[in-house]
Design a protein around this nucleic acid. Structure first.
Lengths: 222, 222
DNA sequence: TTCAAGCGGATATAGATGATCCGCTTCCTC
DNA sequence: GAGGAAGCGGATCATCTATATCCGCTTGAA
């Protein structure tokens, strides 16, 4: 049995380097990045990368593992929140923030990757999302006709805004745009409330027409 | 001057064939489809395709033209609607329906294509979208803090749901999923209303956890 | 000290994509 | 209805990119 422990010290270190370089690169450029790219980014040879991970999927698997852990922590915190509605809001805000910072994570969550990795871990998250929704609904805060799966699709939708904006924005540019999704999250939250109430104050300003058009300019290379 | 009129009859027919084959193929598979693919789909040789359009962009340009016309018609109708709020709703429903049926259109609108085509035509649409928003706001139906650019981003977000769902669903499968975006459109609309009111009746049922997971299964080839 | 384990990265393979070329066919004109 | 310009098809070339391997050299640990 080829245990993790069986790795020589330097090899183990390189494996870690590869995983964190992978996270970083996938976060920035999405899952399209190559295993060769990751190797360079980690400062090791490609050979080393392929010795440790048979292919990109295997690396993604290792990273996905970590990410699901993080999401699970966010969800457990949300479920434990004293106010169920606040729990739901916190969950969406944190989860979306994580995905806005990490394109790779967003792509994995939206099913833009291989089935295997996805299925196994997803079963850990889905029940927790349902719980968040059920609690909020039970408390009379979330409208009756909305379920946990709705939260998933709404996240996918809101995350796409981040993707669109990031791919078009210059690095220096207005970093408010990075948080634009929060504006729409709050509109959606107003739509999710059970009881009619006055519109929330939106946390991010609308973009001007000009800013919008600039952001929709296509990818000048990621 | 190489006029359209200067084309021989068969050549002109082939050009039309290519454009409609392109629309069809881009609609189904997105803008990633090849000019060679389009040629085959049109039943003409690749040579013919490249003789008529120097490259894929040129073909897309021609198609984009038509699509903007259609969107403009939708917008003008919305602006002319007796009830400003109904106009806004109609616009979003029709525009989203069109984009759900046509991946290529959605990608172009979201800026997933080359600048040139985009910029020129966009200027025809943006003011109309603003008008739709302004009218609804002026009538006190749309919340005060929401602008035309918000409608654009919300469309991008909602359209992404269609993309996610389509890429995962089998052709025979539950065609309700194709309209799933409408469910979220209505949640968003509740969030966009100026006056607090009871939640709308959602036009599409939520997916079960099982259905959701099946749809998030990645692309078994488009 | 020894050598299995690990390393780097040039290099082979494969597949997709973009585009051209040229012998044959079709349309149009006179 | 004949001649020639315009058009046609699709095999083929040229890139590109991603994936993966191989092998001579280095390093860690028994």
């Amino acid at each position: 049995m080829m245990d993790t422990q069986a790795l020589r010290k330097d090899a183990a270190r390189n494996r870690d380097l590869l995983i964190s370089a992978g996270r970083d690169l996938f976060a920035r450029r999405g899952l399209a990045a190559t295993l060769n790219d990751v190797a360079h980014h980690a400062g090791v040879g490609v050979g080393t990368a392929y010795r440790r991970f048979a292919n990109k999927e295997e690396l993604i698997e290792a990273i996905w593992q970590q990410q699901v852990d993080e999401l699970e922590a966010i969800l457990r915190e949300a479920v434990a929140a004293p106010d169920p509605w606040e729990g739901l809001v916190q969950y969406l805000e944190k989860s979306l923030a994580a995905q806005a910072k990490d394109r790779g994570m967003a792509q994995m969550l939206a099913g833009r990757t291989w089935p295997d990795h996805y299925d196994q871990q997803r079963d850990r998250l889905a029940p927790l999302v349902d719980q968040v929704a059920d609690r909020a609904r039970g408390a009379g805060a979330l409208r009756e006709d909305v379920t946990g799966t709705d939260l998933i699709f709404l996240q996918i939708a809101l995350t796409d805004i981040s993707g669109t904006v990031q791919s078009g924005s210059a690095p220096e540019g207005r970093d408010d745009a990075d948080r634009l999704y929060r504006r729409y999250l709050w509109i959606v939250l107003d739509g999710l409330r059970a009881s009619a109430s006055a519109p929330s104050k939106l946390p991010v300003a609308a973009l001007t027409t000009h800013e919008t058009h600039a952001l929709l300019q296509p990818r000048p290379q990621g």
